[in-house]
Simulated scan of single mutants.
Amino acid sequence: MDISNNSNISGAFASGLQGVQRGAEQVTQASRDIASLNGDTQQGSSSSTNLTDSVVDLQTGAIGVEASAKVLDVANDTIGTLLDTFA
């Protein structure tokens, strides 16, 4: 196995993991924003734009986690294929 392939696979795992972490952080932050807006709405302030932005951020973060998980899945499959081929 070529060392550059090993580096590429490691990079794919690192990128996938980093994407999952960033997406999870975005979901967490958006969830906190939505929860805090709920308290503001009950007090009578109008925060529909902020609520919309937070919901969009929540969905974007979730999609980012899904995409990064697919990157990890492909990298895992690639490792399996390489092991089957060269082992």
Rank of each mutant, 00 (worst) to 15 (best):
S47G: 15
S47V: 13
S47K: 14
S47N: 15
S48C: 06
S48N: 08
S48G: 10
S48L: 10
T49W: 05
T49F: 07
T49I: 11
T49A: 11
T49V: 13
T49Y: 09
T49H: 09
N50I: 03
L51W: 02
L51H: 09
L51A: 13
T52M: 08
T52C: 05
T52L: 09
D53W: 04
D53P: 08
V55D: 00
V55G: 01
V55N: 01
L58W: 03
L58S: 07
Q59A: 12
T60R: 01
T60V: 12
T60A: 08
T60D: 13
T60W: 02
G61C: 05
G61Y: 00
I63D: 15
I63P: 07
I63L: 14
I63R: 11
G64N: 08
G64L: 03
G64R: 01
V65Y: 13
E66S: 11
E66D: 13
E66H: 10
E66Y: 08
E66P: 04
A67L: 15
A67F: 10
S68V: 06
S68G: 06
A69E: 05
A69D: 04
K70L: 07
K70T: 05
K70N: 05
V71F: 00
L72A: 03
L72P: 05
L72S: 04
D73N: 06
D73C: 03
D73W: 00
V74W: 00
A75R: 06
N76M: 05
N76E: 02
N76K: 14
N76C: 04
